Simulated assay, not measured.
Amino acid sequence: MTSFTTADIASQKGRTYVITGANGGVGRVTASVLAENGARVILAVRNEEKGRAAADAMGGNVEVRRLDLADLSSVRGFASSFADPVDVLINNAGISIPPLERTVDGFESQFGTNHLGHFALTNLLLPQVRDRVVTVGSLVHLIGKIDFEDLNWRTRSYKPYGAYGQSKFANHLSAHELQRRLTAAESPVKSVVAHPGIAATNLMNVEGRGLRHRVEKFFVQSVAHSAGDGALPSLYAATADVPGDSYIGPSRMFGMRGAPSPARRAAKTRNVEDARRLWAESERLTGTVFPLKATGSGAGA
């Protein structure tokens, strides 16, 4: 499909969405559109004041709950607060190329926030998810590499872009492994990845100096589409009839902009050995596990 717009979204009345990082950028647009179409939307945000301001501007059935993906105790508290079913979990929040920082639990901030926080949230909330988990990926996964010997940048020299690429590649690997496990458990829940292309959001508004920063900023400003257009792949992935393990992104300019459609992902995102190894390491680091049992021929999950 190459002409999807918000007008193509059917009524979402009776459906519940949890969206991380929904107080700004692509997440805020995604939440607003779903609320306008009748969904109950939970904004899972670190800053509740900003979340309430965003919710007030949306109208509809919108709630704000605190979630700090950089603190596993916050993730656990957030997940334990849900008693009702969740139709769709959209793992949207993310941070991009900060200086070296660590989460509350000691993880490198981008890997800890973009990947491990969402990994833990997904495992903890999955028993209540009825339809799908949408992971917001990035074109940066194409250049991302996983260093299993130093996932949290403790021995190697920290590179902000390299750390961001690793975290987004991890998102893709984890989403692929999640679908494999859901299939093995004969679960109807689907794992889908969407990426916004190059969207003009605060995530891309990174301060810096030097020629490289100026060139990159000029490039982003030249090709970026709006946050509204950047939200369309997430909305398509969350509401359209797509199969599990789908990858949705903009259809033009090598995936940088345009209407959403099935996209091509790097072959490395389907590396079963790496996906399983990352999953095992992520379980160890977060203390969370896939909560469903494999059945029949899928018992090897």
Rank of each mutant, 00 (worst) to 15 (best):
E49D: 14
P196R: 10
E177K: 14
G21I: 11
F107L: 07
T5I: 12
D87H: 14
S32H: 08
A267G: 10
T295M: 11
A70I: 05
V272D: 09
G300F: 10
V192Y: 03
N91M: 04
G117W: 09
H115Y: 13
G14F: 00
F4I: 04
I95N: 06
T269K: 03
L125N: 06
E186D: 15
A231R: 06
S187N: 14
G38Y: 11
A55I: 12
Y247N: 02
P196A: 03
F111V: 10
R214D: 14
S167T: 07
S282G: 03
D8P: 04
D150T: 01
S157P: 09
E101R: 15
F218A: 15
V129K: 12
T5C: 07
G144Q: 10
D84M: 05
H118Y: 13
A184T: 04
V193D: 00
P127N: 04
T30H: 00
N23H: 08
S96V: 15
A263C: 04
A7V: 03
S109A: 14
V192M: 09
V129I: 15
E48Q: 08
A294R: 13
T122H: 11
A185V: 08
R252T: 05
L178G: 10
L182Q: 08
R212T: 14
G112V: 03
V26F: 06
I19C: 13
Y247P: 02
R40S: 10
M256H: 05
R252A: 10
I97P: 01
P243M: 04
P196M: 12
A184D: 15
G38A: 05
A55N: 12
Q128M: 07
V104A: 13
G197L: 12
T122V: 03
V41N: 11
V33G: 10
T103D: 00
